Amino acid sequence: MQEDDGPEFISLLSPEEEEEMDNEQTPEELSILPLKNTVLFPGVVIPITVGRDKSIKLINDAYKKEKIIGVVAQKSELVEDPDPDDVYQVGVIAHIIKMLKMPDGNTTVIIQGKRRFKIKEILKTEPYIRATVDPIIDIKLDKDEELDATVSALKDLSTEIIHMSPHLPSEASIAIKNIDSPRFLINFISSNLTVTVAEKQELLESVDFKTRAKLVLQHLSKEQQLLELKNQIHSKVKVDLDKQQRDYFLNQQLKAIQEELGADSPDKEIENMRERAKKKKWNKEVEAAFTKELSK
Protein backbone atom coordinates (compact mmCIF):
# COMPACT_ATOMS: atom_id res chain seq x y z
CA MET A 1 0.00 0.00 0.00
CA GLN A 2 1.31 3.79 -0.34
CA GLU A 3 2.09 10.68 -6.17
CA ASP A 4 2.85 13.37 -8.90
CA ASP A 5 1.45 14.28 -5.61
CA GLY A 6 2.90 12.80 -2.47
CA PRO A 7 1.77 10.51 0.32
CA GLU A 8 -1.69 10.46 1.79
CA PHE A 9 -2.48 12.33 4.99
CA ILE A 10 -3.90 10.00 7.60
CA SER A 11 -7.11 11.95 8.03
CA LEU A 12 -10.24 10.03 8.98
CA LEU A 13 -13.81 10.79 8.01
CA SER A 14 -16.44 10.50 10.73
CA PRO A 15 -19.91 9.09 9.93
CA GLU A 16 -21.37 12.56 10.55
CA GLU A 17 -18.94 14.16 8.10
CA GLU A 18 -19.72 11.48 5.52
CA GLU A 19 -23.47 12.10 5.87
CA GLU A 20 -22.92 15.85 5.54
CA MET A 21 -20.79 15.24 2.44
CA ASP A 22 -23.52 13.06 0.89
CA ASN A 23 -26.08 15.80 1.44
CA GLU A 24 -24.02 18.53 -0.24
CA GLN A 25 -25.35 19.80 -3.54
CA THR A 26 -23.26 19.06 -6.62
CA PRO A 27 -22.55 22.23 -8.64
CA GLU A 28 -23.86 22.16 -12.20
CA GLU A 29 -20.50 23.44 -13.48
CA LEU A 30 -16.96 22.78 -12.29
CA SER A 31 -13.45 23.87 -13.15
CA ILE A 32 -11.65 20.63 -14.00
CA LEU A 33 -8.14 19.98 -12.65
CA PRO A 34 -6.30 17.05 -14.33
CA LEU A 35 -3.82 15.17 -12.11
CA LYS A 36 -0.86 13.03 -13.14
CA ASN A 37 -0.34 9.65 -11.45
CA THR A 38 -3.12 10.25 -8.92
CA VAL A 39 -6.75 9.29 -8.46
CA LEU A 40 -8.60 11.21 -5.76
CA PHE A 41 -11.25 9.31 -3.76
CA PRO A 42 -14.19 10.73 -1.75
CA GLY A 43 -13.29 11.60 1.83
CA VAL A 44 -9.54 11.20 1.30
CA VAL A 45 -7.20 14.14 1.98
CA ILE A 46 -4.08 14.45 -0.20
CA PRO A 47 -1.44 17.06 -1.06
CA ILE A 48 -0.98 17.81 -4.76
CA THR A 49 1.79 19.76 -6.47
CA VAL A 50 0.55 22.21 -9.08
CA GLY A 51 3.11 23.48 -11.58
CA ARG A 52 1.31 24.00 -14.91
CA ASP A 53 0.19 27.55 -15.67
CA LYS A 54 -3.41 26.47 -16.35
CA SER A 55 -3.58 24.53 -13.11
CA ILE A 56 -2.09 27.37 -11.05
CA LYS A 57 -4.65 29.84 -12.47
CA LEU A 58 -7.49 27.37 -11.80
CA ILE A 59 -6.41 26.90 -8.18
CA ASN A 60 -5.92 30.65 -7.62
CA ASP A 61 -9.36 31.46 -9.06
CA ALA A 62 -11.09 28.74 -7.03
CA TYR A 63 -9.28 29.64 -3.81
CA LYS A 64 -10.60 33.21 -4.03
CA LYS A 65 -14.18 31.96 -4.33
CA GLU A 66 -15.92 28.76 -3.25
CA LYS A 67 -12.73 26.60 -3.09
CA ILE A 68 -14.56 23.81 -4.93
CA ILE A 69 -13.07 22.15 -8.04
CA GLY A 70 -13.46 18.95 -10.04
CA VAL A 71 -10.47 16.61 -9.99
CA VAL A 72 -9.90 14.00 -12.70
CA ALA A 73 -6.97 11.68 -13.45
CA GLN A 74 -5.01 11.88 -16.67
CA LYS A 75 -4.98 8.77 -18.86
CA SER A 76 -1.26 9.30 -19.56
CA GLU A 77 1.29 11.04 -17.38
CA LEU A 78 3.27 11.99 -20.50
CA VAL A 79 0.73 14.58 -21.66
CA GLU A 80 1.79 18.02 -20.42
CA ASP A 81 -1.23 20.01 -21.63
CA PRO A 82 -4.19 17.62 -21.40
CA ASP A 83 -7.39 18.33 -23.29
CA PRO A 84 -10.78 16.72 -22.44
CA ASP A 85 -9.91 13.55 -24.37
CA ASP A 86 -6.78 13.03 -22.25
CA VAL A 87 -8.62 12.72 -18.92
CA TYR A 88 -11.06 10.22 -17.45
CA GLN A 89 -14.69 11.28 -17.46
CA VAL A 90 -15.38 10.22 -13.87
CA GLY A 91 -13.75 12.31 -11.17
CA VAL A 92 -14.27 13.66 -7.66
CA ILE A 93 -15.42 17.03 -6.42
CA ALA A 94 -12.68 18.43 -4.16
CA HIS A 95 -12.55 21.08 -1.48
CA ILE A 96 -9.33 23.12 -1.32
CA ILE A 97 -8.30 23.04 2.34
CA LYS A 98 -5.04 24.94 2.08
CA MET A 99 -2.71 26.41 -0.56
CA LEU A 100 1.05 26.86 -0.10
CA LYS A 101 3.40 28.74 -2.45
CA MET A 102 6.72 26.89 -2.71
CA PRO A 103 10.19 28.47 -3.29
CA ASP A 104 10.58 26.56 -6.60
CA GLY A 105 7.56 28.32 -8.07
CA ASN A 106 5.20 25.37 -7.68
CA THR A 107 2.09 25.44 -5.54
CA THR A 108 1.23 22.72 -3.04
CA VAL A 109 -2.47 22.33 -2.41
CA ILE A 110 -4.18 20.24 0.27
CA ILE A 111 -7.49 18.91 -1.03
CA GLN A 112 -10.21 16.60 0.24
CA GLY A 113 -12.38 14.51 -2.04
CA LYS A 114 -16.14 15.00 -1.60
CA ARG A 115 -18.28 13.00 -4.01
CA ARG A 116 -17.97 11.47 -7.45
CA PHE A 117 -19.16 13.08 -10.66
CA LYS A 118 -19.21 12.39 -14.39
CA ILE A 119 -18.36 15.04 -16.97
CA LYS A 120 -21.47 15.84 -18.98
CA GLU A 121 -20.37 18.56 -21.41
CA ILE A 122 -17.18 20.56 -21.93
CA LEU A 123 -17.96 24.29 -21.85
CA LYS A 124 -14.47 25.64 -22.53
CA THR A 125 -10.81 24.69 -22.38
CA GLU A 126 -9.22 28.13 -21.80
CA PRO A 127 -7.80 29.36 -19.52
CA TYR A 128 -8.61 25.90 -18.11
CA ILE A 129 -11.27 23.23 -18.58
CA ARG A 130 -14.81 24.07 -17.44
CA ALA A 131 -17.55 21.47 -17.72
CA THR A 132 -21.09 20.64 -16.68
CA VAL A 133 -21.24 17.53 -14.49
CA ASP A 134 -23.69 14.95 -13.22
CA PRO A 135 -23.34 13.61 -9.65
CA ILE A 136 -22.82 9.88 -9.05
CA ILE A 137 -25.04 8.89 -6.14
CA ASP A 138 -23.75 6.24 -3.73
CA ILE A 139 -26.24 3.52 -2.91
CA LYS A 140 -26.99 3.30 0.81
CA LEU A 141 -25.50 0.19 2.39
CA ASP A 142 -27.61 -2.22 4.40
CA LYS A 143 -25.90 -3.51 7.52
CA ASP A 144 -25.70 -7.31 7.45
CA GLU A 145 -23.30 -10.15 8.22
CA GLU A 146 -21.79 -10.10 4.73
CA LEU A 147 -20.96 -6.39 5.04
CA ASP A 148 -19.41 -6.93 8.48
CA ALA A 149 -17.34 -9.84 7.17
CA THR A 150 -16.15 -7.78 4.17
CA VAL A 151 -15.11 -4.85 6.36
CA SER A 152 -13.30 -7.20 8.75
CA ALA A 153 -11.43 -8.89 5.88
CA LEU A 154 -10.39 -5.52 4.43
CA LYS A 155 -9.09 -4.28 7.78
CA ASP A 156 -7.24 -7.51 8.62
CA LEU A 157 -5.49 -7.80 5.25
CA SER A 158 -4.59 -4.09 5.15
CA THR A 159 -3.15 -4.22 8.67
CA GLU A 160 -1.10 -7.30 7.83
CA ILE A 161 0.37 -5.57 4.76
CA ILE A 162 1.24 -2.48 6.81
CA HIS A 163 3.09 -4.61 9.37
CA MET A 164 4.94 -6.48 6.60
CA SER A 165 6.10 -3.33 4.81
CA PRO A 166 9.01 -1.37 6.36
CA HIS A 167 8.08 1.76 4.40
CA LEU A 168 4.57 2.21 5.75
CA PRO A 169 4.01 4.11 9.02
CA SER A 170 2.57 2.12 11.90
CA GLU A 171 -0.02 4.89 12.35
CA ALA A 172 -1.67 3.67 9.15
CA SER A 173 -2.82 0.46 10.85
CA ILE A 174 -4.34 2.49 13.69
CA ALA A 175 -6.14 4.62 11.13
CA ILE A 176 -7.51 1.53 9.36
CA LYS A 177 -8.84 0.05 12.61
CA ASN A 178 -10.61 3.29 13.52
CA ILE A 179 -12.51 3.77 10.27
CA ASP A 180 -16.20 3.16 10.90
CA SER A 181 -17.61 3.84 7.43
CA PRO A 182 -17.35 0.88 5.00
CA ARG A 183 -17.38 3.24 2.01
CA PHE A 184 -14.62 5.45 3.38
CA LEU A 185 -12.62 2.34 4.30
CA ILE A 186 -12.77 1.24 0.66
CA ASN A 187 -11.81 4.73 -0.53
CA PHE A 188 -8.94 5.08 1.95
CA ILE A 189 -7.46 1.69 1.05
CA SER A 190 -8.00 2.26 -2.70
CA SER A 191 -6.17 5.57 -2.51
CA ASN A 192 -3.14 3.89 -0.93
CA LEU A 193 -2.95 0.76 -3.08
CA THR A 194 0.24 0.19 -5.06
CA VAL A 195 -1.55 -0.22 -8.40
CA THR A 196 -1.73 1.68 -11.68
CA VAL A 197 -3.82 4.80 -12.24
CA ALA A 198 -6.07 2.79 -14.58
CA GLU A 199 -6.72 0.21 -11.84
CA LYS A 200 -7.48 2.92 -9.28
CA GLN A 201 -9.80 4.58 -11.78
CA GLU A 202 -11.65 1.28 -12.19
CA LEU A 203 -12.21 1.23 -8.43
CA LEU A 204 -13.42 4.83 -8.46
CA GLU A 205 -15.90 4.20 -11.25
CA SER A 206 -17.33 1.01 -9.74
CA VAL A 207 -20.78 1.81 -8.34
CA ASP A 208 -21.64 -1.46 -6.59
CA PHE A 209 -20.00 -1.69 -3.15
CA LYS A 210 -19.60 -5.48 -3.21
CA THR A 211 -17.88 -5.33 -6.60
CA ARG A 212 -15.50 -2.62 -5.38
CA ALA A 213 -14.77 -4.54 -2.18
CA LYS A 214 -13.98 -7.69 -4.15
CA LEU A 215 -11.59 -5.78 -6.44
CA VAL A 216 -9.85 -4.15 -3.47
CA LEU A 217 -9.46 -7.52 -1.72
CA GLN A 218 -7.93 -8.99 -4.90
CA HIS A 219 -5.41 -6.14 -5.09
CA LEU A 220 -4.58 -6.48 -1.39
CA SER A 221 -4.11 -10.23 -1.71
CA LYS A 222 -1.72 -9.77 -4.65
CA GLU A 223 0.20 -7.10 -2.74
CA GLN A 224 0.47 -9.37 0.30
CA GLN A 225 1.87 -12.22 -1.83
CA LEU A 226 4.46 -9.90 -3.42
CA LEU A 227 5.54 -8.62 0.00
CA GLU A 228 5.90 -12.19 1.30
CA LEU A 229 8.06 -13.09 -1.71
CA LYS A 230 10.22 -9.96 -1.29
CA ASN A 231 10.70 -10.69 2.40
CA GLN A 232 11.66 -14.32 1.65
CA ILE A 233 14.22 -13.18 -0.94
CA HIS A 234 15.60 -10.57 1.47
CA SER A 235 15.93 -13.17 4.25
CA LYS A 236 17.73 -15.62 1.94
CA VAL A 237 20.17 -12.96 0.71
CA LYS A 238 20.84 -11.90 4.30
CA VAL A 239 21.55 -15.52 5.34
CA ASP A 240 23.93 -15.99 2.37
CA LEU A 241 25.76 -12.76 3.19
CA ASP A 242 25.99 -13.70 6.88
CA LYS A 243 27.52 -17.08 5.91
CA GLN A 244 30.10 -15.42 3.63
CA GLN A 245 31.04 -12.94 6.34
CA ARG A 246 31.33 -15.71 8.92
CA ASP A 247 33.55 -17.84 6.63
CA TYR A 248 35.78 -14.85 5.90
CA PHE A 249 36.11 -14.06 9.62
CA LEU A 250 37.01 -17.69 10.45
CA ASN A 251 39.62 -17.81 7.68
CA GLN A 252 41.20 -14.60 8.98
CA GLN A 253 41.29 -16.07 12.51
CA LEU A 254 42.87 -19.29 11.20
CA LYS A 255 45.60 -17.34 9.41
CA ALA A 256 46.36 -15.37 12.58
CA ILE A 257 46.59 -18.56 14.69
CA GLN A 258 48.90 -20.25 12.16
CA GLU A 259 51.18 -17.25 12.07
CA GLU A 260 51.34 -17.15 15.90
CA LEU A 261 52.32 -20.85 15.96
CA GLY A 262 54.96 -20.30 13.30
CA ALA A 263 53.06 -22.33 10.72
CA ASP A 264 52.60 -21.13 7.22
CA SER A 265 49.22 -19.72 6.29
CA PRO A 266 47.31 -21.42 3.42
CA ASP A 267 48.29 -18.55 1.12
CA LYS A 268 51.96 -18.94 2.10
CA GLU A 269 51.84 -22.72 1.57
CA ILE A 270 50.38 -22.24 -1.90
CA GLU A 271 53.11 -19.73 -2.74
CA ASN A 272 55.78 -22.19 -1.53
CA MET A 273 54.30 -24.95 -3.70
CA ARG A 274 54.36 -22.64 -6.72
CA GLU A 275 58.04 -21.86 -6.10
CA ARG A 276 58.91 -25.57 -5.79
CA ALA A 277 56.90 -26.36 -8.93
CA LYS A 278 59.05 -23.97 -10.96
CA LYS A 279 62.03 -26.28 -10.32
CA LYS A 280 60.21 -29.36 -11.60
CA LYS A 281 60.65 -30.56 -15.17
CA TRP A 282 57.06 -31.51 -15.97
CA ASN A 283 55.43 -31.85 -19.34
CA LYS A 284 52.73 -29.33 -20.27
CA GLU A 285 49.80 -31.61 -19.34
CA VAL A 286 51.11 -32.29 -15.82
CA GLU A 287 51.97 -28.61 -15.30
CA ALA A 288 48.47 -27.55 -16.42
CA ALA A 289 46.81 -30.09 -14.10
CA PHE A 290 48.94 -28.94 -11.15
CA THR A 291 48.17 -25.27 -11.77
CA LYS A 292 44.45 -26.02 -12.05
CA GLU A 293 44.39 -27.91 -8.74
CA LEU A 294 46.40 -25.20 -7.02
CA SER A 295 43.92 -22.55 -8.11
CA LYS A 296 40.95 -24.30 -6.48
Rank of each mutant, 00 (worst) to 15 (best):
Q2A: 09
E3N: 10
D5H: 09
P7E: 14
E8N: 06
E8R: 07
E8D: 07
F9M: 12
L12E: 08
S14C: 06
S14G: 04
S14F: 04
P15L: 10
E18I: 04
E20H: 10
M21D: 03
M21H: 01
N23R: 12
E24S: 08
T26V: 15
T26K: 01
E28W: 01
E28A: 06
L33C: 03
N37T: 07
V39Y: 12
L40A: 04
F41E: 08
P42R: 08
P42W: 04
P42Q: 05
T49I: 10
V50D: 00
S55D: 06
N60H: 09
K65C: 00
G70K: 01
G70V: 03
V71Y: 02
A73D: 02
A73W: 02
A73K: 02
Q74A: 12
E77K: 11
E80I: 09
P82M: 06
D85H: 10
D86M: 08
G91L: 04
H95W: 13
K98M: 06
L100H: 05
K101V: 00
M102W: 00
P103D: 12
P103R: 09
V109N: 08
I110F: 15
I111P: 01
K114N: 04
R115I: 07
E126K: 09
Y128A: 02
I129L: 02
A131L: 01
T132P: 01
I136T: 02
K140R: 06
K143T: 10
K143Q: 13
E145R: 07
D148T: 10
V151F: 04
A153E: 11
S158W: 03
I162Q: 03
M164C: 03
P166W: 03
L168H: 04
E171R: 12
I174P: 00
N178Y: 10
D180S: 13
P182K: 14
P182W: 13
R183E: 12
F184I: 05
N187C: 09
N187G: 09
F188Y: 14
F188L: 13
S191A: 15
T194I: 05
K200H: 05
K200P: 00
E202F: 06
E202H: 11
E202C: 00
L203C: 03
L203Y: 05
E205I: 01
S206M: 08
D208T: 07
T211Q: 13
T211M: 12
R212V: 02
A213R: 08
K214V: 05
Q218Y: 08
H219V: 03
Q225Y: 05
Q225E: 15
L227N: 12
L227G: 03
L227A: 07
E228T: 10
L229D: 08
N231A: 11
K238M: 14
Q244K: 15
R246W: 09
R246Q: 15
R246N: 14
F249W: 12
L250N: 12
K255I: 09
Q258R: 15
E260A: 10
E260M: 13
A263F: 11
D264N: 09
A277Q: 11
N283E: 15
E285L: 13
V286G: 04
V286Y: 07
E287T: 13
A289L: 13
F290D: 06
S295F: 01
S295M: 03
K296L: 07
